[in-house]
């Protein structure tokens, strides 16, 4: 049984006004337990709207969201419990920090769950360790921290709820390459260690290529593709036709093939490219001798 399933999910913003907009149309997807899914798509393609349905922040205009096989809107009064099971980290999550110390801010989610003090403390420290926050930072005001540190505190705030599904909406937006690598690495580690299901919304093809197992491509509110990462990026022409790019490495491979080199399948991470190209280069060097 998939952990999350949507059936014909549609949502319309401001219905009945001149500003009416169909954000997503008839989305049916299945996400299995332990999956690491990436969601890509243009600005306004409905990515954020879709993920806000998965934890019940938005109520679908039509269609259903099933969590562990049960409609999350079966009992609207219990929607908070869904939010503890499906943790959502918003875009620029550092804008939501409000407590006096980073520690208290991370503890906000767990204490809303009604856990006891020891359990909260344990969870806060585990989450802080996952995102690589040192203990002395926890006692500081979140407003004194650097941008990257604030972001990590905010992500830890959701991780501390230990959700079954962790959704991150552009967690690396506006970070420098080092901060980006760090956060992605920590998310991957969290996924591996807890066997959690992770959904990563991103604009960066490189980020998606490097971390996810499956990719959901959104276009104008509908699902354009939903498949293994490798398969999705092998359909580079289709991606480009809906105005999305492919990872830079993939572009290089496509170009090389166009120039007549037999480089084999498309690579979509630098690591793969190295594995693919190195033997070829060695052969070439060998031939020249």
């Amino acid at each position: 049984m998939p952990i999350i399933e949507t059936q014909g999910l549609s949502y319309t913003y401001s219905p009945g006004t001149p500003y009416k907009k169909d954000a997503i149309k008839g989305i049916s997807i299945k996400i299995e337990k332990g999956d690491f899914v990436g969601i890509i798509g243009h600005t306004g393609s409905g990515k954020s709207t879709l993920v806000q349905h998965l934890n019940g922040l938005l109520r679908p205009t039509s269609g259903k969201v099933l969590l562990n096989g049960r409609d999350i809107w079966e009992n609207p009064k219990k929607i908070r419990e869904v939010r503890f099971k499906v943790g959502l980290v918003f875009q620029y999550p550092e804008h939501q920090l409000f407590e006096e110390t980073a520690y208290k801010d991370i503890a906000f989610g767990p204490s809303n769950m009604g856990l006891d003090g020891d359990e909260i403390d344990k969870r806060v420290r585990t989450a802080a360790r996952f995102v690589g926050l040192k203990d002395e930072l926890l006692e500081k005001s979140p407003f004194e921290l650097s941008g990257g540190e604030k972001r990590r505190v905010a992500i830890a705030g959701v991780m501390a709820m230990q959700p079954e599904v962790l959704i991150l909406d552009e967690p690396t937006a506006g970070l420098d390459p080092k901060g980006r690598d760090m956060i992605l690495g920590q998310i991957a580690e969290y996924q591996k260690e807890n066997g959690a299901t992770v959904i990563l919304v991103s604009h960066s093809m490189e980020d998606i290529a490097r971390t996810t197992k499956k990719v959901l491509v959104m276009n104008k509110g509908s699902v354009a593709m939903f498949d293994e990462t490798q398969i999705v990026f092998s359909r580079a022409e289709e991606l480009q036709s809906i105005g999305l790019s492919v990872p830079a490495v993939t572009r290089i491979f496509m170009q090389l093939r166009g120039m007549g080199y037999n480089v084999g399948d498309n690579a979509y991470t630098v690591k793969q490219a190295v594995e693919r190209l190195l033997p070829l280069l060695k052969r070439e060097v060998g031939n020249n001798d």
């Binding site: 934890n55 922040l57 939010r83 918003f90 999550p93 804008h95 906000f108 989610g109």
Partner: peptide, 13 residues
């Protein structure tokens, strides 16, 4: 709206 959603996502009641 966004902040409210973010806090609701953390279980704010």
């Amino acid at each position: 709206d966004k902040i409210m959603s973010a806090q609701k996502a953390r279980g704010a009641d």
